[in-house]
């Protein structure tokens, strides 16, 4: 690849990671004032804040490589549904507390592995963002893993809700581990992470936790995918309508 092409490819890659963080951060931020008690409301908001920060870091870098006056905000607020490249799991509505924490746990285990690899990226900007994010994720994981045990081992009701959440989520985990040409190319030059290589470790970690929590992640008899090519669920459009409302209603303004 030519240098200019490499930059643009890395920009797309950073955009993907930024979209993941942005969309999940949005969902988490919806919990603010809706938590089950104040302490947890505050704790969840900390996680949301980490993701908004992470989104800014990745999008900023993507914008920088992209040039043409792009900014973190033009990327977040001026693209439409088909241009967003986050995984589908991130955009699913927040659901109940069990759903939010189950999704968070599945992603925290994934992120922990992913970021540990991205840390080694030959792209020092990506590696730098990964280093900061990895610290955050190790705390998120500690929290979400404990919640799996509490909900799984709490009451019948919490166990039922957690299992239901996992039933709903399982088919969205497949695409976390599927590579496309763009990421394969970047992987070859030591920039991107080979996500397909993370599956075994991820699966053994979540299986161990779920066994302890007395729930199961059902084997994927279905798999919905397409986030990375902008083939989204219907939920994303509504999310964007909200996220982008002010900038869309008053284009060209500073805020």
């Amino acid at each position: 690849m030519k240098e200019r092409d490499i930059d643009q490819t890395i920009s797309v890659y950073a955009l993907r990671l930024g979209d993941d963080a942005l969309i999940l951060g949005h969902r988490l931020s919806e919990w603010c004032s809706n938590g089950p008690f104040l302490e947890e409301d505050i704790a969840l908001t900390n996680v949301a804040l980490d993701y908004v920060g992470r989104a800014r870091n990745f999008l900023n870098y993507a914008a920088q490589l992209r040039g043409n006056g792009s900014t973190e905000d033009s990327l977040a607020y001026q693209r439409d549904c088909r241009d967003f490249t986050n995984f589908l799991m991130h955009e699913l509505p927040r659901g109940d507390f069990a759903f939010t924490l189950a999704r968070q746990y599945l992603l925290d285990e994934y992120e922990a592995l992913f970021l540990a690899e991205l840390l080694k990226s030959k792209d020092s900007d990506l590696a730098g963002i990964a280093a900061k994010s990895a610290k955050e994720t190790s705390y998120h994981l500690r929290r979400s893993r404990e919640w799996m045990l509490r909900l799984g081992g709490g009451t019948d009701e919490s166990h039922r809700r957690l299992q239901l959440a996992l039933d709903e989520l399982t088919g969205y985990t497949t695409e976390l581990f599927e590579m496309d040409d763009l990421e394969r190319d970047l992987c070859e030059i030591g920039v991107a992470v080979d996500r397909s290589a993370l599956f075994d470790r991820w699966f053994s970690a979540v299986s161990k936790t779920f066994a302890e929590a007395n729930v199961t992640l059902p084997p994927a008899s279905w798999a919905v995918k397409g986030g990375r090519i902008g083939f989204h669920t219907e939920h994303l459009g509504h999310l964007l309508a909200e996220l982008q409302y002010v900038q869309r209603a008053y284009p060209g303004c500073r805020w």
Binding site: E39, I42, A43, N46, R143
Partner: peptide, 19 residues
């Protein structure tokens, strides 16, 4: 703060009192 066990109390203390 309120928590159910020490571990949880420690984490909430981190989230609430060291923002």
């Amino acid at each position: 703060l309120h928590a159910e066990d020490q571990e949880q109390a420690l984490e909430y203390a981190r989230d609430v009192y060291t923002r």
